[in-house]
């Protein structure tokens, strides 16, 4: 390469690298400023420290609850519920979609009911869940499942039906059975939709589980929020909120990485 071009290229790369760093540094500054302002505002009583707490108090509670171990229990319970709600909701939705695809008559019969269920705010069914499953973790997981399973069914069933008719015709000309059609064409063709459903369902599972814990539980991050609110311990509410944000983001990132991995062969 000619030396002048080489120099320009080096300059270009440096510029790109620098810009990337500026973004990261700005992001960090924003985060620090937020906590700093929060702390200052609380110290100088610009905001009511009893309601809005302060980073130092939240940190203090974090240390305390970590030392006595209760925080692990709350985090563990919520994580378990969310992961289970997410998995059952997603896999269950895909199975239900497969079922509907397999029996077109049934799907026509059930169509208005599924639409109605989808439109229903699932949270409204909370009390029913408690009556059915009892006041325990199962109800919370059921809420996480309920909130994601119907929309997953609809989205995946839609993807099954939108499979390119000509691809189906190809296997038809070889005399494929229904099972072969599903296994060789419908399922792999809908793979991208299923993977993107994972991402949506992570968020939905969190909503379901936190609301579920509001309604019935004596452990978990949602419980910490509602309990802290009831005893007017807003340090606890804030700590739980911060943890929910961090954990939900981490889980979303894990699924995003999983998505990249699952889609690596597709273009």
């Amino acid at each position: 390469m000619n030396p002048k071009l080489h120099e320009q290229h080096a300059k270009f790369r440096l510029q790109q690298k620098r810009e990337k760093w500026y973004v990261v540094i700005s992001q960090l500054i924003l985060l620090i400023t937020f906590f700093f302002l929060w702390e200052i505002a609380s110290r100088f009583n610009w905001i009511d420290p009893l309601i809005f707490s302060s980073p130092s108090n939240v940190w203090g509670l974090f240390i305390e609850m970590t030392v006595n171990g209760t925080l692990y229990t709350h985090m563990g319970v919520t994580l378990l519920e969310t992961i289970l709600g997410f998995l059952i909701g997603t896999i269950g939705g895909i199975l239900m979609a497969a079922f509907l695809w397999w029996f077109p008559f049934l799907s026509r019969v059930l169509d208005p009911y599924i639409v109605a269920l989808n439109a229903t705010p699932k949270v409204a069914l909370g009390p029913m869940l408690i009556v059915i499953f009892g006041a325990n973790m199962t109800s919370v997981i059921a809420m996480g499942v309920l909130i994601s399973i119907i929309v997953t069914t609809l989205v995946i069933y839609g993807a099954f039906n939108e499979t390119d008719k000509n691809l189906i015709k190809v296997v038809d000309t070889f005399g494929a059975s229904t099972l072969q059609k599903f296994y060789y064409v419908i399922l792999p063709a809908s793979y991208p939709s299923m993977v993107s459903a994972l991402k949506v369902n992570v968020g939905l599972a969190w909503v379901g589980v936190i609301v579920g814990e509001y309604l019935v539980s004596n452990e978990g991050l949602g419980y910490m929020i509602i309990y802290g609110f009831q005893v007017f311990n807003f340090n606890m509410v804030m700590l739980s909120l911060v943890l929910v944000v961090i954990l939900a983001t981490l889980m979303y990132q894990v699924v995003a990485i999983l998505e990249k991995f699952l889609m690596r062969k597709r273009r």
């Binding site: 000509n166 015709k169 190809v170 064409v185 063709a189």
Partner: peptide
């Protein structure tokens, strides 16, 4: 019904893009 003795070629290749 369809028969393996008869092959059918469509207007486009319709290869499965994921394979």
């Amino acid at each position: 019904k369809t028969n393996t003795n008869i092959g059918y070629m469509l207007q486009q290749d319709y290869l499965f893009p994921w394979l």
